[in-house]
Amino acid sequence: METGHFFNHKHLTSLADLSVEDFELVLLTARSFKEISSRSIKKVPTLRGRTVINLFFEPSTRTRLSFEIAAKRMSADTFNISASSSSAAKGETLVDTALNLQAMNPDMVIIRHSSSGAANLLKRHLQTSVINAGDGTHEHPSQGLLDMMTVIEHKGDLTGLKIAIIGDIAHSRVAHSDIIGFTRMGATVSVSGPATMVPLEVESLGAKVCLDPRDAVADADVVMALRIQRERLLDPLIPSLREYAAFFGVNESLLRLARPDALIMHPGPINRGVEIDPAIVDGPRSVILDQVTNGVAVRMALLYLLMGGE
């Protein structure tokens, strides 16, 4: 690519492993690949003959499909394994499952798993490239990258931007990757939510913790709401979804504090009326579906760069 930077990674488990130059190269590559998806014949021969396995131990529609479409548009052969059809139910360990897959000589294993570090475990045991497609409450690097790409498309540059993320920061792998990626590229990230979900230790990732969401959103260029998971009621992290919506939901009155041209983002799937007002989701500043579109481009770029594209 024109950056002249060589992408010296075989795996992607955490955005913390990427340098500024790496981010620039991935995002530039993604931008150039995005056009492929708007062609009438949406296929290039770049990864012809390569084998990509989607190993998903958690239900996922968007991410799995996005990786599959990305691979197919690059002409790679893709295979999907979901938890119900894998050996996990029969008691086979993750490492054994992965070694069996490797024995069939794939070029890439993309893993989604409920345990943090699952992709790191595979990376230690496999020669094959590994992409973390979301592991527990650790990271979701490709989501972080597609979020960065989406903001750059609308704002030109990340340097100096103010990003606000509202929700369960402690347990959000998306938030973790976003905080790492955006701050490394020169943006500031403020996070807010119930204190049970936003411990001060989050600041060690590079974010500023605000008790009041209005402080996080003030003058923000980007406002992102995170999905609230119902099982978090049991911990108990919040009293009720109704109370969450009333005090931490992203709505018009909160957004009045952000910059007038602030982008509205959400990694999906959305609980309309809980973490975000439905009117905001569908409103003019929402780039939520752009995120989904860019997800395909970012994943095409990752497959290309990690499988040794120059």
Partner: peptide, 12 residues
């Protein structure tokens, strides 16, 4: 242990 490392690794 609960702290910065557990947040970074996403471990309870």
């Amino acid at each position: 242990n609960e702290g910065e490392t557990s947040i970074r690794l996403g471990l309870p």
